[in-house]
Every structure is written in C-alpha cells, then in structure tokens.
Simulated assay, not measured.
Amino acid sequence: MNSISTQIENIMTENKGKIYSIHDFYRLGTKNTIKSILYRLNEEGKITRLIDGLYTKPKFSEILNEYSYPDTNAVADKIADKFSWTISPTGDTALNYTGLSTQVPNEYVYISDGPYREYLYRNKKIIFKHTTNRNITSYSKELSILIQAIKAIGKDNISNNDIQKFTIFSKNISEDLIKDTLKLPFWIQKVLERIQKKNDEQTITNFK
C-alpha cells in the first residue's frame, strides 16, 4: 500500500492544481485501497479534498502568499467526467462563460443528462439540473454554452452589445451557426444569424 500511496502522491505533486477522483487511480489498485489512501493523504495534509471524491494538490502562489484552488467550473467538469454526464452551463453561469457577465456567481448551474444533484464547493453551490439528452449532446460544448446564454438573456432583451460579445465567444465554435442549428427555436436561430453576420463583417474588415 505504501508503494501505491507514494505513486499517487508523486502523480499529484507533479500535477499541482489538477483535480483527481478515485477513478483516475484504478490502474494502481482496488477501489477500496485507492479510497483509503486518498483519505489518509488528505488527513495528513499532503493533498486536499475539494468535495466528496475529488482531490487536488493545491498550487502555492508566491505573489499572493497563499494556495490557489481549481475554479468552480473545473470542479463541475470533473464531477461530470466522474459520472460520465454531459453538461452545459446555463443561466448566469452561461453568461459568465460567454463574457456577458463579470459577476462571480454564488450558484453555478448546469443542465445535465444525469440526475439532479447539488454540491457545495468553497462556499459556492454547484447545481446540476436534468434535461433531455439531445439538448446538450447535439452540439459542441461551446455552441451549447452560447445557446444557453442566449436563452438566459431572453428573446426581447438581446442588445447589439450582447451580439458583439457573443461574436467574440463564437470564434471558438466549430459548427456553422446557421446550417447546424435548424432544429432550434426560430428566435434563437435569428440571434445566431445576427452573430454570424457580425462574424462575417469582421472577417471582411480584417481582410481589407
């Protein structure tokens, strides 16, 4: 067990700030063995338990003179990975992702093809709300986030400034915003058309 414990500690020390679950170490030993080693390493202060089942070796910032911990979105992504859920930020969380909101939310809300779950991480709530699978598996993560952010603002509240920020975010999206979104509600398609038009205008300007 000491050998496995040393291996786990070394892996986490070499990857400070990365989030690990029991699943990441199954190749080294049985589930119960890994679970007890992670529990003991946490008790000894060698690693840090983030939430039940997730651990990290925090990075130390010389500038801030304190340890830094993974951000809430990264923890949410790791929870989803642990349970093989597909998730997408929604509401204010999606607005935060796309740059339309700079406020740090107290609740990070995601739609998920898994069950409804709530977690508390460093005084922030992580909430997973169940939705039908096709709502989040039909598109890339980036396009799903954009769609959820558009929904969060609402049909009659999207300004030209919002379109500009959405356009910046959409540069990371691989899909065609018009051709690949024909199953979405018509009003969302029209917003995506405005974003695509803005994208095309900027591309033409850059080539001049």
Results as ranks from 00 to 15, higher is better:
117 R>H: 03
101 S>C: 08
133 N>W: 13
79 I>E: 01
180 D>Q: 11
26 Y>D: 11
55 Y>F: 10
3 S>G: 07
77 D>N: 04
137 T>M: 11
30 T>A: 13
76 A>W: 09
127 I>C: 08
152 A>M: 07
141 K>Q: 09
196 Q>T: 01
174 S>F: 11
7 Q>E: 13
69 Y>G: 07
6 T>K: 13
59 K>W: 12
16 K>S: 07
190 K>E: 13
55 Y>Q: 00
130 H>E: 07
29 G>V: 06
42 N>D: 06
180 D>K: 10
117 R>G: 05
206 N>Y: 06
24 D>S: 02
106 N>P: 05
194 R>F: 00
179 K>T: 14
199 N>P: 08
94 A>Q: 05
137 T>A: 05
166 F>H: 05
116 Y>F: 07
70 P>D: 01
190 K>P: 04
123 N>C: 09
205 T>F: 12
14 E>G: 09
166 F>I: 08
156 D>N: 09
176 D>G: 06
85 W>M: 04
201 E>F: 09
132 T>K: 15
22 I>H: 03
123 N>T: 12
165 K>G: 03
171 K>V: 09
188 I>M: 01
121 Y>P: 10
95 L>E: 01
86 T>L: 11
207 F>H: 13
156 D>A: 05
111 I>R: 02
198 K>H: 10
168 I>C: 13
128 F>Q: 06
64 L>C: 11
116 Y>T: 00
74 A>F: 07
186 F>W: 13
106 N>H: 06
152 A>W: 01
140 S>P: 11
151 K>V: 02
164 Q>S: 15
180 D>L: 12
111 I>K: 00
105 P>E: 08
124 K>D: 09
